[in-house]
Amino acid sequence: MKRLEVRSLAVDLGPSRALQGIDLSLEPGCLTALIGPNGAGKTTLLRAMAGLVRPSAGEVALNGTPIARMPASERARAIAYLPQGGGVAWPLPVAKVVALGRLPFGERPEELPAKGREAVEAALRAVALEGFESRPATSLSGGERARMLLARALATQAPVLLADEPVAALDPRHQLIVLEVLKARARAGATVVAILHDLNLAARFADRIVLLDQGKVEVSGLPETVLTEAHLGSSFGIRARVTREEAGLLVLAQGPLPDP
């Protein structure tokens, strides 16, 4: 159980400030959705949480320990990161790609110990890719590849899982499968953060939502606190109707607002 804390974080990308004054506390057991318009800094924030970009100010801490001070392998065991739209360069067998998630433990894919093998199998089962073990990774469809890469991140069994647009370019069925996997990881005690563009999926699956706009946290909290017509108007520039249905919130985007 690890709490991920972001304290007064600022990140500069080149000359421009990408993030400023970010304060967040991400709880174990929660699936947090990171939403915001293009260029809001979502990916930068997720990369900073994974320790992949150096903050210009502030820090990211895991149970009180700044991740910048953790050795790379320890950080890799604690935080699994799934980048957006990743691929595999070589036609490696699927089982081997997923087994790469065990590298932070020093486990080599061709001689996984029992614990590593179990983690790989559990990850493949979670994303419904049993039977794909010896298929070349490059022969998979888009949906299968996304699930394989998610399995790779799951195989680390890290207490923190960060996923950048894990359901982008997936069909509705696979979107639901992947989000259910993320939710299950959260329910099992992990701290899960996912960048989502589909506001309805965010409303339906996220325990908490963080709305990022122009490098700052506009609002964060429960879905009904964040997904309001006013916030969607000011941050996304859309006219939207938010209604409460039996299954949860329903966001109906009606049209773009004129440029302010």
């Binding site: 360069a89 070589w90 790469l100 998630g101």
Partner: peptide, 13 residues
């Protein structure tokens, strides 16, 4: 690890 791209490789330590 690099077969999965630079970002993933770095996240794997």
């Amino acid at each position: 690890a690099l077969a999965l791209g630079e970002e993933t490789a770095r996240s794997l330590g």
